[in-house]
Design a protein around this nucleic acid. Structure first.
Ligand SMILES: [Mn+2]
Ligand SMILES: [Mn+2]
Ligand SMILES: [Zn+2]
Ligand SMILES: [Zn+2]
Lengths: 142, 142
DNA sequence: ATCTACATTATAATAATTCTAAACTGTTGA
DNA sequence: TCAACAGTTTAGAATTATTATAATGTAGAT
């Protein structure tokens, strides 16, 4: 309960009204130790099942995209069939577990700086991100 | 006309019947110097407008996915809202032009080998791919 | 307490993709 | 050569993810 004050302020700063739906959404998104990777459906389920917050799908979409525009969330393209979002909004690298479909942030130290030798003429580099696809080691998979 | 024989054989080898739709599709996909990156819609348009091959959307989807399963095409996740496919099926790196939404293969020499220092326990690395997002240099974009 | 701008909601609309089932066609072997 | 069959194409329906709409609700100011 007291923690929510942070979120209320946070929302205000960004120009969003701290409604109960948004505060609950903040709790789900940001009350955690580690980066949170999720789909819209993950988030709706967490809100309704774990947080007992009835909320419409449209509100979740709208608010997630509002957060994204404000730089509080980042959309990640890992699977063309689904949108993943990430509470870590910096450019960073990922492991993607192809068994569980889980996204995991790489630590800074996990991957050396990527050296780009040649760029497209007349273009500047906005971001460089690495995706490492991993899968179970002990599986018979040709 | 003589070139098509290659495609007819290619299709046969893979266990697909060399129908005129599939042969035309092969021409569009593989009769080119460089890697081809496309969306399903790009392909349908090329087939109907450039090749004068009337073809249903369902057939394009089915055949593209058949090729994908056979390892003749690879799906690329660049934009969660659209599926891109690639005639280069090896693990490789890309530039993505955020102005034109164009995907461009990196040459081997463009990017140094990516050094992964630490992996997820019990998992093996299936692929390591880099995505470099670029945009116009001379644009006012904060 | 009332007002008002903004938010929430259910529902409709749209877009991408997949499914279905009937019509069609490449291949085989009589 | 040609019927028969199995695989293929097709139009359109169904499904799924996402976005738009417009009526209703509510936070925050006065
Ligand atoms: Mn999106
Ligand atoms: Mn696909
Ligand atoms: Zn992340
Ligand atoms: Zn490519």
């Amino acid at each position: 309960m007291p923690k929510n004050c942070n979120f209320i302020e946070k929302l205000r700063e960004v120009g969003l009204r701290p409604t109960k739906q948004r505060v609950k959404m903040c709790e789900v998104l940001y009350n955690r130790e580690k980066t949170f990777h999720f789909t819209i459906n993950d988030l709706v389920k967490l809100l309704s099942e774990k947080m007992n917050q009835k909320i419409s799908l449209a509100t979740v979409y709208n608010t997630v995209h509002a957060f994204e525009k404000k730089g509080y969330l980042k959309e990640i393209s890992i699977d063309s069939h689904k949108s993943y979002f990430d509470t870590n909004t910096s450019a960073h690298h990922h492991f993607f577990d192809e068994d569980t479909h889980e996204l995991i942030d790489c630590d800074e130290s996990d991957i050396d700086k990527v050296n780009i030798r040649k760029n497209i003429t007349g273009k500047k580099i906005n971001s460089v991100e690495v995706l490492v696809r991993v899968a179970s080691d002990n599986q018979t998979q040709k």
